[in-house]
Design a protein around this nucleic acid. Structure first.
Lengths: 115, 115
DNA sequence: CTAAACCTTCAACCTAGATTGAAGGTCAAT
DNA sequence: ATTGACCTTCAATCTAGGTTGAAGGTTTAG
């Protein structure tokens, strides 16, 4: 598959695919005689995984380290679980912060309404 | 007051004060014969207001528009309240998003633990 | 043959909120 | 006169996650 086809199937731009490659998220594909990138269909799925992980709050850098892990690591969940748990704690800390901000904003509102 | 004194009283760096000035958050102070900025003490308080607003979730751009409002606007809370309410709704939307992310992460964790 | 639609690389730009550095002027004390 | 602590401007750098554009090569359809 050429880059444009992968882009269309994955629903992302071609520049994004090159960007992911540069960032180590996608393995450098083989090249045709003309220098064009030659992708396997698997690439489309990897892009989907990247987007799912991103949506779960993982940064591209974190995702790159996951994808760089040997496949055997991926097979046993024990290797992933700690990362997910850490991210969960991170999210919880963030939630607490934002909830405090929300309270402060409501207090400010009450203060303003009172005058 | 010279910029270093303001910085010390406000607990920020001098470069930050120049940055805030460039961004329209602080009015350009008068200059001494040597070209040094000459601040009034009021500036220290404005920096405090900026930080408080920032902590409440307002961007510097938003804060700049508040600070650019004529003082009479600031006197009646009715001019501020809508902005605070809007920010509150924004925060709530963000909270819902992050809470969904949290649930998705927990689901992933359960999924992983099950295998 | 030519035009459109691909592909290549590399560099620059974008937002946000600053910090850092270079190159230079000034001020206070010694 | 010289050191050191200030101050000035302007440009560059940083993180994140990309997009945009220039300059050029290739492929496909008509």
């Amino acid at each position: 598959m050429k880059i444009g086809e992968v882009a269309q199937h994955a629903g992302v731009s071609t520049s994004r695919l090159r960007f992911y490659e540069a960032k180590g998220l996608l393995p450098p594909p083989s090249r045709g005689a003309n220098g064009y990138r030659e992708y396997e269909f698997r690439t489309v799925k990897i892009v989907g995984i990247i987007e799912r992980a991103q949506h779960l709050g993982f940064s591209l850098k974190e995702i790159a380290t996951f994808l760089a892990m040997p496949p055997e690591q991926w097979k046993n969940p024990d290797a992933i679980i700690p990362h997910v748990e850490a991210k969960l704690r991170e999210i919880d800390a963030h939630l607490r912060e934002v909830q405090k901000r929300r309270r402060d904003l409501r207090d400010l509102l009450a203060e303003l309404a009172q005058r």
